[in-house]
């Protein structure tokens, strides 16, 4: 089997609109259900995508989400042209947050976004340049049906 992505989705994540955040993950979730992917895998994809989307809305005024699915894995790439992350190690720490108060008052910005994305994906890479933007790549393996 080739590893060429069979399905590809591209989304513009709107940075001004908090209420629409999560639409990309919703679409992906729906498609994964149609593929019959195991519920726990769908849950993990939903969590990492949702966290990623919210992060892009909070910190980077939106960005692009690309999701590629083949029969072995789901690859999610989130790309923004936001402020970038000066210290990735620090940002990966649970509870570390730079979200402003108005965001925290909405119940977001608890500093669990990146740690959760790492926790629920099988592989995660962050590339970030201050002033240029951040790209997060995450991979969730599709467990083969027993």
């Amino acid at each position: 089997m080739t590893n060429e992505a069979k399905l590809r989705f591209e989304f513009d994540v709107d940075g001004d609109n908090f209420t629409s955040a999560g639409t990309a993950s919703e679409t992906v979730k729906y498609n994964l259900k149609q593929l019959g992917i195991a519920p726990d895998i769908i849950r993990r994809v939903a969590i990492v995508m949702y966290e990623g989307e919210i992060n892009m809305v909070i910190h980077a005024k939106g960005g692009k989400a690309v999701v590629e699915i083949d029969s072995d894995e789901i690859n999610i790439t989130l790309k923004d042209v936001g402020p970038g992350i000066p210290d990735i190690n620090l940002a990966m720490q649970e509870g570390w947050s730079t979200a402003p108060d108005n965001i925290r008052s909405l119940g977001f910005g608890a500093g669990m976004g990146l740690p959760n994305m790492k926790k629920y994906s099988d592989k995660m890479e962050i590339e970030s340049v201050v002033g240029e933007g951040t790209t997060v790549k995450m991979c969730v393996k599709i467990r083969k049906e027993a």
Partner: peptide
Amino acid sequence: VMRLDENLDVAMEKLQRIN
């Protein structure tokens, strides 16, 4: 009932077509 096919590869092809 949401599942397009028992076989993942067949389901993917269907989904590609649907999209």
